[in-house]
């Protein structure tokens, strides 16, 4: 039994309530559910995973190490060199731009939180309709939804800018958040549709017999059962928004509103000098929130139907 296995979060008794199995069967099943219990296979698996992780992480490690080196040495003596441990890149980088870096972190945070709330609410509503309701032109609208994500942003952004400029929204976070509140990230609708369709319909039927309408089925049956999908959407929205450069570049012009990608961008000039030490240091800083979100968010990601209570 491992700590990270969420099935241990619940007692066998609780799980038996969820799955409708007697507790002793749940215990027995848990034992069977764990493959690779033999120590040797387990060690082999660890060795393989650690090797793969190092391979995957080498570039990230290089960046972290470089962020502690003087800028002029990063390229002159490139490679993974642990020759200095100066935090001056962090101190200077933090204060290199008009505002201290926490301002940009906060701005990004605001945009991210608005986007997450928007996507979670609006996309799950739309997804419920596509997955569970029968309505006129369902296939047509579904196709429209998919088509709406097939045009590259570069041809959409100019008309969008004109639109938001007319509304007086340029230089606010509104052009970045309001579209999410209106489910324009249609990928997530599709994602949630796929998840909802994986939830047995018997559960809805049972609730309907109890007299529940669609809002209640949605809120009390479907939402709790699609926590992994909601977590996925949250994590993805976080990362995409946190890293999104182009639309933030176009819609935000006041330095006080700059987000992390814009701030990082303000460090560089390919034709002249770029303080890569500071740039890397601040890149590392900007990675920390997304890394933490993922580290802790994955609890919800893997909270499957097996461990979600149905009341």
């Amino acid at each position: 039994m491992t700590k990270t296995d969420p099935s241990t979060d619940l007692s066998p008794l609780t799980e038996s309530v969820v799955t409708g199995l007697p507790p002793e069967r749940v215990r027995e099943q848990r034992r069977r559910r764990h493959p690779f219990r033999k120590p040797l296979t387990s060690i082999l698996r660890h060795v393989f995973l650690i090797a793969a992780a190092v391979l995957m992480l080498y570039p990230v490690i290089w960046m972290v190490v470089s962020s502690f080196r003087p800028t002029d040495l990063i390229f002159r003596e490139a490679g993974l060199v642990f020759d200095s441990f100066e935090i001056s890149n962090y101190v200077d980088g933090w204060n290199a731009l008009t505002y201290p870096f926490n301002v940009y972190l906060l701005n990004s945070g605001l945009v991210v939180i608005g986007s997450i709330i928007g996507n979670l609410v609006s996309c799950s509503l739309a997804a419920y309709a596509f997955a569970r309701l029968e309505f006129t032109g369902k296939k047509f609208w579904f196709a429209i939804m998919l088509l709406s994500i097939m045009l590259p942003i570069h041809v959409i952004i100019v008309p969008q800018y004109v639109l938001f400029s007319q509304l007086g929204w340029v230089n606010t976070f509104l052009p970045l958040i309001v579209p999410k509140l209106l489910a324009t990230d249609a990928f997530f609708i599709f994602l949630m549709v796929q998840f909802i369709r994986g939830i047995p319909r018997e559960l809805d039927e049972a609730a309907r017999i109890d007299g529940a309408g669609h809002p209640r089925i949605f809120l009390q049956i479907i939402l709790p059962l699609m926590v992994p999908a909601l977590a996925t959407v949250t994590i993805f929205t976080f990362i995409w928004t946190w890293n999104d450069f182009f639309s933030q570049l176009i819609f935000l012009t006041k330095p006080g509103l700059y987000t992390v990608p814009l701030a990082l961008n303000a460090f560089q000039d390919a034709q002249s000098s770029t303080d890569f030490g500071e740039l890397f240091a601040m890149s590392v800083v900007s990675l920390i929130p997304i890394f933490l979100i993922f580290l802790f968010g994955q609890r919800f990601l893997i909270k499957g139907i097996a461990t979600t209570g149905i009341k």
């Binding site: 969420p6 799955t19 998840f195 699609m226 999908a229 996925t232 499957g304 139907i305």
Partner: peptide, 12 residues
């Protein structure tokens, strides 16, 4: 990540 979430969605 999406696969991981999907795996956990399969009813026991």
């Amino acid at each position: 990540v999406i696969f991981l979430a999907g795996l956990r969605q399969i009813p026991v």
